[in-house]
C-alpha cells in the first residue's frame, strides 16, 4: 500500500519549472534514519507549507534545503537537492553563498546580541554586498520596511535587538534574512514562540513576501498552513506522504494518513 502511494508521489511533480527540488533524499543521524526517499518540488514565488506530526522529519527536511545539517556531526545525506537545477550538495557549491541565496528563519527568534541595525546589516556586511555606508543604510531600511518593522524601530535602530518583543524579534530575523536578497526563504515554525497578534502580523508578512520570494514554511498549525500557503506537503514518520495544492490537501486528501492527520485523529 505504502509502496504504491510512494511511487505515485514520485510521479506527481506536476510543476513545470520548480525553484528547488528534492530527489530520493535520505538522511540519517548515525544509525537513526530520519528521512526516507523524499521527492518534493518547490514552486517559485509561492508559499509551500510542510506539515505533519512532531518528529515526522519536516524540520529535518527544511534544514537539508540550505545544508544546515552540515553543522551537525554524524549526519549522512543521500539523494539530491537542487536549486535552479543545480545540486546544492555538489562539492563545487559554496555553502556560504548557498545559505545567502536560501535564507532561513528559525523557530525561536534569535536576534544577535547587537543593535537592531547591526543585526540587519550583518548579512550584507559579511557577504560584501555594499560599498558604502549609505548603501548599507538603505538596505537596512528597506529590509526593515519589508519585514513591516521599520515604523516600530525607526527611532531606536541603535538600541539592542534583544530589547524588542518576541514578535518584533521574529520580524527582525526575517528582515535580517531578507537583507542579503535571498531567492528562497526557509521558515522553521516561525510563529511557534509568538502570541496570536504577533503571529497574525508575521503571517501577513509572509503573504506579502510571496510576491518576491519563494518561501518554504514548516508549521505545526494546520490553520496556519491553510492561511498562508499555496502548496502543502504532509510528512509522516520521515516520509513525504502527500503533496498538492493547499486547498486540495485540506478538502480532498488522497491519502488516508493525511486525512487522519488533518481531521485530528492523530497529530
Amino acid at each position: 500500500m505504502a509502496a504504491v502511494s510512494q511511487s505515485a508521489m514520485t510521479a506527481e511533480p506536476s510543476v513545470a519549472s520548480p525553484k528547488m527540488t528534492a530527489r530520493d533524499l535520505n538522511l540519517s543521524y548515525g544509525d537513526n534514519q530520519a528521512l526516507f526517499d523524499v521527492n518534493l518540488d518547490i514552486v517559485e514565488r509561492q508559499v509551500t507549507a510542510l506539515i505533519g506530526p512532531s518528529g515526522c522529519g519536516k524540520s529535518t527536511f527544511l534544514r537539508c534545503m540550505n545544508r544546515m545539517n552540515d553543522t551537525i556531526d554524524g549526519v549522512t545525506i543521500k539523494g539530491e537537492v537542487t536549486l535552479d537545477g543545480r545540486d546544492i550538495y555538489d562539492k563545487r557549491i559554496d555553502v556560504v553563498q548557498l545559505r545567502a541565496r536560501i535564507g532561513m528563519v528559525f523557530q525561536k527568534p534569535n536576534p544577535f546580541p547587537k543593535t537592531i541595525y547591526d543585526n540587519v546589516a550583518y548579512g550584507p556586511r559579511i557577504h560584501g554586498l555594499v560599498n558604502s555606508r549609505d548603501e548599507l543604510d538603505q538596505i537596512v531600511m528597506t529590509s526593515l520596511e519589508r519585514a513591516g518593522l521599520l515604523k516600530e524601530v525607526k527611532d531606536r535602530l541603535q538600541s539592542p535587538a534583544t530589547g524588542l518583543s518576541g514578535g518584533q524579534q521574529q520580524r527582525l530575523c526575517i528582515a535580517r534574512a531578507v537583507a542579503v536578497s535571498p531567492e528562497v526563504i526557509l521558515m522553521d515554525e516561525p510563529c511557534s514562540a509568538l502570541d496570536p497578534i504577533a503571529t497574525a502580523k508575521v503571517e501577513e508578512l509572509i503573504d506579502e513576501l510571496r510576491s518576491n520570494y519563494t518561501i518554504v514554511i514548516v508549521t505545526h498549525s494546520m490553520q496556519q498552513a491553510a492561511r498562508v500557503s499555496q502548496r502543502t506537503a504532509f510528512f509522516h514518520l520521515g516520509k513525504l506522504v502527500e503533496v498538492g495544492e493547499t486547498d486540495q490537501i485540506f478538502t480532498n486528501p488522497k491519502d488516508e494518513r493525511t486525512k487522519g492527520y488533518i481531521t485530528g485523529r492523530f497529530g
Binding site: H127, T142, S181
Partner: peptide, 28 residues
C-alpha cells in the same frame, strides 16, 4: 523614492558570480 529603487533592487538576485563577490569570498 530612494527606498523604492533599492527595494526593487533588493529582490533582484545578487550576481554571485561577479568578480567582486568572488574576490570577497576568497578573502573570507
Amino acid at each position: 523614492a530612494a527606498a523604492k529603487v533599492i527595494s526593487d533592487n533588493l529582490h533582484k538576485p545578487v550576481d554571485w558570480d561577479s568578480p567582486k563577490i568572488a574576490r570577497n569570498i576568497k578573502k573570507r
